[in-house]
Design a protein around this nucleic acid. Structure first.
Lengths: 154, 154
DNA sequence: CTTCGTGCAAAATTTTTGCACGTTC
DNA sequence: GAACGTGCAAAAATTTTGCACGAAG
């Protein structure tokens, strides 16, 4: 974990700093978090950490292979630790719940595109749709988007 | 097509305007385009179209079901026409080429999550990875991100 | 003529960048 | 002590919003 961070940084001639440790830990603790959320989390522990440091650090951590990002919303990217087992994300458009699935669910997909020479980045996959709860609660016509439902609600 | 637009607009009490026609046509002609690209395309034909109109119109068109968006890059969303057959997008991290696949490739995935009550929005799916050309041209260690390769290159 | 849509300008977000200073190795 | 990292402030880039005027039905 943190040893991992220190080791990987050293191997690249980069330095171990409190910010880098805090930001990595924040990602691990939050599970899935946007740069903004990471910043807030880190700041709740230490006051003076800058947004630009978060952006720069998340980039470094991703290069080191310690975190990854996916797009779990139409907005900011969300980062997660690579210490978790690799997983596929499914996001409910309605309630925004995120469920993780075993990569096995996309094995056939990986195989199919693989025959075409395409190597799927499974960890980056974000699958949007409607979760069981939301589907039963309040069925809507298919094809509706988050935007449209927001507008119809508003 | 445009008739479709007129009809759907009318049904919602919305109005048919030249901007809406142009923007829809731009999306159809471009295949996959960001709001910015749509704006540029429209402006190449008619001078005075505003960015905010593009944003607002893409939202309306999506509500009408005439266009959809996915996230084919880490940045802006990209819109495509729903007149095309529904398809799954695979984007190469390296060369940014976008290939469309038949939804059949994700049928097992849809089935798997379906058993869990999750309804997959196939049209929104964006699969990242490495295409055949790029994989053979210049193999890299697995786990590398676009950011890291950019940095290593830079 | 009534309602809706657009352009414009300003604001709000989110992310990036340059630079001087402080820290790590 | 040399190189790297951070905070800060400013700049970019992207998207949203309020409003008055023009256009569609």
């Amino acid at each position: 974990m943190s040893d991992d961070l220190a080791a990987r940084l050293r191997k690249q001639g980069l330095r171990l700093t409190p910010q880098r440790q805090l930001i990595l830990r924040a990602v691990e603790e939050l599970g899935h978090a946007t740069p903004d959320e990471v910043l807030a989390h880190v700041r709740s522990q230490v006051s003076s950490v800058n947004a630009s440091t978060v952006y720069r650090t998340l980039e470094v951590l991703e290069e080191l292979g310690l975190v990854r990002h996916t797009h779990l919303s139409d907005r900011a990217p969300t980062y997660h630790s690579t210490r978790e087992h690799e997983h596929v994300h499914a996001v409910c458009r309605r309630c925004h719940a995120v469920r993780s699935y075993d990569p096995a669910v996309v094995a056939p997909l990986v195989a199919a595109l693989g025959e075409d020479g395409f190597t799927v980045d499974v960890g980056h996959l974000a699958i949007f749709g409607l979760c069981a709860d939301c589907a039963s609660e309040d069925p809507r016509a298919p094809g509706e988007t988050e935007a449209s439902s927001a507008r119809l609600r508003g």
